[in-house]
Amino acid sequence: MNYFKKEFILVVVITFLSVNATCQEKASSTTEVEKSVEVKKKSKKKKKKYKLSKIDLSHWSVTTPELNHKGKATNVEPPEILKYATDKRLTPYMYNDSITGALVFYAYPSNATTANTKYSRSELREQMEPGNNNVNWTFKQGGTMKGVLKVDEISKDSDGKPHKVIIMQIHGRLTNEQRDLIGQKDNNAPPILKIYWQNGKIRVKTKVLKNLDASDEEILHDEAWGDDEGYTFDQEVGHRKFTLEVKVSEGKLIVVLNNFDYKVYDNIHMEKWGVFENYFKAGNYFQSRDEGAFAKVNYYKLKVKH
């Protein structure tokens, strides 16, 4: 009798241990599956976070703060600019923010300056015909540039005040005939519009004709034009995203901040400016020569229409 009891107990113990081991094996297997699923989910989440810029660069060239082999500021045109993410000339100054999808423009004081300025830049230049600076537009033809951007980082001066940066421009240009008429070596004309980020606000500067009775030939000279007193929008954008739009038509220029705050220029100076060709600019035209100074401007959207 005792023999059968011992046998029975042994069978029960073996069965219990077998069942327990199987359960543990299943539990372990389930845990491994859950971990695998969790890893895949995390992997998918990480992939979703990586964003590329959606800005079309096919009609823009870019100038950077780096000297080229000729000792001048580096300039890259289409189609090369489309490979900015792998172009070693551009990657330090123009690159993607993979988290937000912004196109980042970085600039600092360097020796790579352009004509008529002491400041360096990481800035786009509109090219209506890719690779050709000789095709531009007039106020009569009109145009619109609209961007969503923010000044992500910017250094401060010795007084603790943020440096300023030009984030959008409309630059004038002489035709070849106008250039030859006034005996100028290049096609440069003044910028009719400069838009600054200054101490957290948006400030607009335009050109005014010094002598309204100037002849058609005199108007073409850079010294015929001076700066207006400027206009600063009331609202503060700081380091937040904001929308900026520039609208041009015959004799008229409108700057719009965040889709509701307007500054309209509808005057004799805009009418007289109609003699020039123009092109849009956008990016980071840094306005400091201080040692160690820098700025990062993030563009999330940028579109031009004519």
Rank of each mutant, 00 (worst) to 15 (best):
E277L: 08
L302D: 03
R240Q: 15
Y299R: 00
K46M: 15
G292W: 00
A21P: 06
R89P: 06
K51W: 09
P191I: 10
H269K: 07
L244M: 13
A107E: 04
V13D: 13
A21L: 07
R89D: 15
K205S: 13
A102C: 06
T91C: 00
E236W: 07
V37I: 11
Q141H: 08
I202S: 04
H239K: 14
P162Y: 12
Y95M: 05
V76S: 04
Q178T: 09
G238D: 13
S120C: 09
G251K: 03
Y119A: 09
V12C: 07
S53Q: 06
F16K: 06
H221E: 13
Q127F: 08
K247V: 10
V104P: 03
G251E: 12
C23F: 14
V11F: 11
D290W: 02
Y108G: 01
S288F: 05
Y50E: 14
D97C: 06
L67V: 11
T175L: 04
A224F: 10
R179S: 14
S53A: 14
V264L: 15
F16E: 13
H306T: 15
S98E: 15
L174M: 08
T15G: 07
Q198A: 10
N133A: 14
S43E: 15
N284H: 05
G292K: 02
S249R: 07
Y50A: 13
P109A: 12
F105Y: 01
F4M: 15
N211H: 09
A107Q: 03
S36I: 07
S61P: 04
V33A: 10
V255W: 01
G283N: 01
L103H: 00
Q287W: 02
T74H: 05
G172E: 01
S28K: 13
K47R: 14
G131P: 04
E218N: 02
L82A: 05
A102G: 05
I154T: 00
S158M: 08
D290Y: 02
G172Q: 00
I99Y: 12
R173F: 09
K44M: 14
I268W: 13
N68P: 04
D97V: 02
N132L: 07
T86F: 07
Y106E: 02
Y93N: 04
A214H: 02
P78F: 06
R125W: 11
E7G: 09
K88S: 15
N278W: 01
V275C: 08
D266K: 06
K296S: 03
G142D: 03
K150H: 06
E229F: 11
S120M: 07
D87C: 01
T117Q: 08
K40Y: 09
K241D: 13
K70S: 14
N132R: 06
I219S: 02
Y3V: 08
I14P: 02
D266T: 10
V135I: 15
K272W: 10
C23M: 12
Q169V: 12
N75Q: 13
V264P: 00
E126R: 02
L193N: 04
D290R: 03
K48W: 10
R179C: 12
F294I: 06
T63Y: 04
Y50S: 10
E129H: 06
G238V: 11
T114M: 07
D56L: 11
D87V: 03
D157Q: 06
Y95E: 01
D87T: 00
A27T: 13
F233Y: 08
A115R: 12
V264D: 13
R179L: 14
T91A: 03
N132A: 08
T91M: 00
